[in-house]
Simulated scan of single mutants.
Amino acid sequence: MSNLAASELPIVILDAVAPTKQRCLLNRRGSAVWDVEGDRGRFAVKLGYPIEGTSEWPAQPWTALAPAREGHILFRLNVSVTYGEWEEGTWNVQPWREGPDLYDLWSPVRAEGSKVEPHLDVARSCAQTLADLHAKGWAHGDVQPAHFIIGMDATRLIDLALAHGQWVPEGYDFTYRGCLVHYEAPEISKAILETGEAVPTFESDVYGLGASLLISATGWRAVEYPDDAPRPVQRQAVADGRRRDVTMPGKLGPLVDAMLSYNPADRPTIGEVISALS
């Protein structure tokens, strides 16, 4: 199907939220995300639909299931969420998280000639929210700067559709096929190249956090490959360990360097990351 079917909120969402204001933030690659406000509050609404195959990429039916899968995980984490099915796939309605993401917040750090250093308390808050997820038995599986929302009262980790570690209903579950390669650990990229699937772990999440801190503070990806390289080429570079040298000021430099270690066992645990930032 095209994106057209997700360009309007379905009736089931209108009934659930009764919006007075609504704004579509994203509608591509099998997912539409809406910012919705109404008398019942402000919400993020996600719609999933299958990606049709073309001559350039295979069909991706799993994207239709992602919102309900995330809805189940959020429910297990005691987040106020509703989710269900619509004619093209599944949906969820979850609390709106206000604030910049990590990459946007650290834009002054990346500015040419900047003397601004990345705030360790922000890095620590990102590590803590990831540690909280790990403590509940879930590996996030899609750690990236855009998924850390730095609010006035707390840092929150969003987009949990790819999380693994606890039971997920079979009807909403699907195989993990990696995430945005910029933040994908070498063992994940290697497994996907070899078998087409992988399992995210706490160690791969630590790698993702290290890569997120690096690119947010410097603008550089952890691994070198052409900007327009196909995903298999990107993954091969990650699997081959073509990592850049980490040059970051203060204690973040050696810490991020360790978090990006090729061998998962050589990376610090998320608890050790928090201790190093305290």
Rank of each mutant, 00 (worst) to 15 (best):
V206K: 05
V206R: 09
V206G: 00
Y207V: 00
Y207H: 12
Y207Q: 04
Y207C: 08
Y207P: 12
Y207E: 03
G208T: 05
G208D: 07
G208L: 03
G208S: 05
G208Q: 06
L209E: 08
L209W: 04
L209Y: 01
G210A: 06
G210N: 00
G210T: 09
G210Q: 01
G210W: 07
A211V: 08
A211Q: 02
A211K: 01
A211E: 08
A211Y: 06
A211L: 07
A211S: 12
S212R: 02
S212F: 01
S212V: 01
L213F: 12
L213H: 05
L213V: 08
L213M: 04
L214E: 01
L214T: 10
L214D: 05
L214C: 02
L214S: 07
L214M: 13
L214K: 04
I215V: 15
I215L: 12
I215P: 08
I215N: 08
S216G: 10
S216T: 01
S216K: 05
S216Y: 00
S216I: 08
A217Y: 13
A217M: 10
A217P: 13
A217W: 13
A217N: 12
T218L: 05
T218P: 11
T218F: 07
G219K: 07
G219A: 10
G219S: 09
G219D: 04
G219L: 04
W220A: 15
R221M: 07
R221D: 14
R221A: 13
A222S: 14
A222F: 08
V223C: 07
V223L: 04
V223K: 02
V223P: 00
V223Q: 02
V223Y: 13
V223N: 03
E224I: 11
E224Q: 15
E224D: 15
E224P: 03
E224L: 13
Y225V: 06
Y225W: 13
Y225K: 07
Y225P: 13
Y225N: 10
Y225L: 04
Y225T: 03
Y225D: 04
Y225H: 13
Y225I: 06
P226N: 01
P226V: 11
P226L: 04
P226I: 06
P226Y: 09
P226M: 00
D227G: 12
D227E: 15
D227H: 13
D227W: 10
D227A: 15
D227L: 11
D228P: 05
D228G: 08
D228E: 15
A229R: 02
A229V: 13
A229L: 11
A229P: 03
P230M: 09
P230R: 10
P230L: 09
P230D: 09
P230F: 05
R231V: 15
R231N: 14
P232A: 04
P232C: 08
P232M: 08
V233Y: 10
V233T: 14
V233P: 09
V233C: 03
Q234S: 13
Q234T: 07
Q234K: 13
Q234H: 06
Q234N: 02
Q234E: 14
Q234R: 14
Q236T: 15
Q236V: 11
Q236W: 01
Q236C: 07
Q236P: 07
A237D: 01
A237H: 14
A237P: 10
V238N: 09
V238H: 11
V238C: 11
V238Q: 08
V238A: 06
A239S: 13
A239R: 12
A239V: 03
A239E: 09
A239M: 12
